[in-house]
Nucleic acid binder design. Structure first.
Lengths: 146, 146
DNA sequence: TTTATGTAGTTGCATAAACAACTATATGCC
DNA sequence: GGCATATAGTTGTTTATGCAACTACATAAA
């Protein structure tokens, strides 16, 4: 049995995602401390729009690993915050294209800085090689389950 | 700068906990398929009670990395499901001791089996050595941020 | 062209998390 | 004893997730 060593005591913390929960909490806290009034979930949507503005909600679902209702509501909230706008597609009237507002564009630099800093806090004392292997494992887990 | 390699493209998926989200979803799905009608969060509370029945809510907070309101409501829901009972402590009247019901005790074996199986699905193709390093990294991340 | 089927997005409902404010009880110090 | 402070737990509010059911539009086949 290959991964037997995982099946007892450490099963729990791996399953519950202790580490990623801790990262999420710290990132949220760091956003707040930096005066950034967005949730990490909202940030994760903005992150993809900064890479490519004008994505459909479905593309945002794929990019952020969320289902359609989640994206509907995240976009609702981002619209209320005036950070994005829904624009009906002319080619396909089912589609909403989501565009960043100027306010959202201003958030990019600072929030990415905070995210980078958070990751540095998280990975303090971890070597490059260890990080590479951890990335591979997490990627394989994702591929196995997606 | 030590962990520079993380700071660009893969920052996102590490922060968002893609892998642990995927594990959580799969575990929930596997519970459902096995006829187990509990959430993974409820399971995480039961998990600790199976190890030691009769914990206070505060101890459950510490064990599950949740805050007090979260545990209050998880215990509320577990009580509704008749899986646990609150029993006021005689020594300290502020404290609720949480005890498993017989129904909850019956869930242990099957749910642990499902959890083990889920972890095997997640780690398919990952070597023992890789898993060990990933565990170390996740543990260090947790220690850095807790 | 009509019908079936698929895709994009929304809404309703239950569960959960984070944070702040609160009540009740315990403890330690004067 | 009486007061300040700490601890255990609860409640309210906002945000988010997962699932199912739904509407609207698009596409492909008959």
């Amino acid at each position: 049995m290959p991964n037997n060593q995982f099946r007892k005591s450490e099963l729990y913390s791996f399953i519950t995602g202790k580490a990623s929960t801790a990262i999420a909490r710290r990132l949220q806290k760091n956003f707040k401390q930096a005066g950034l009034d967005i949730t990490i979930e909202q940030w994760s949507v903005l992150y993809h729009l900064w890479k490519e503005d004008g994505m459909s909600q479905q593309l945002l679902c794929d990019a952020t690993f969320r289902d359609k209702p989640s994206i509907t509501r995240l976009v609702d909230n981002l619209e209320k915050l005036k950070l994005v706008k829904r624009v009906a597609s002319k080619d396909d009237r089912r589609i909403n294209m989501i565009y960043l507002t100027p306010e959202a564009q201003e958030l990019q630099e600072k929030s990415m800085e905070v995210a980078n800093q958070t990751l540095n806090e998280a990975l303090e004392g971890v070597t490059h090689g260890q990080v590479e292997i951890a990335k591979e494992v997490l990627q394989m887990v994702y591929e196995n389950l997606k």
